[in-house]
């Protein structure tokens, strides 16, 4: 468990270092995710400690972004002023993205199952 956690931290560290070195504005933890993903693909299996640590963190993933979510309180004026636009924009954008994907499926005649 602690070993698995250490592995995740080291990959995060590597991702952070790599993204600062390249100067591409990607969050270091996402670069770490990709590095770990590449490693797992090469290993063709998930080592036990990593599997345990990641299962634990993902189980409580939603708890982890509560503190950030509470920060919405600082955007109250913005929500009051533009809330209706936000709903409309999100609805339109969601429909457009879904239609773009469905068009791609039709174009390639995908039939996955």
């Amino acid at each position: 468990m602690v070993l698995g956690f250490l592995v995740l931290l080291v990959y995060w560290l590597a991702g952070e270092a790599l993204s600062q070195w390249i100067g591409w504005p990607i969050p270091g933890n996402v670069v770490g995710l990709v590095l770990l993903w590449i490693t797992l693909t090469l290993l063709k299996k998930v080592p036990q400690p990593v599997a345990e640590a990641s299962k634990m963190l993902i189980r409580y993933l939603t708890l982890l972004f509560v503190p950030a979510g509470v920060g919405l309180i600082e955007h109250w004026d913005r929500l009051m002023a533009n809330g209706h636009w936000m709903l409309l924009i999100i609805a339109i954008s969601t429909v457009l993205a879904a239609l773009a994907m469905i068009a791609t499926f039709k174009l390639f005649r995908v039939n996955a199952s």
Binding site: Y11, W12, A53, L57, I58
Partner: peptide
């Protein structure tokens, strides 16, 4: 903990 949790998404 969001940091390591995001890296952990590589597993699923």
């Amino acid at each position: 903990l969001l940091g390591p949790a995001t890296v952990a998404l590589a597993v699923p």
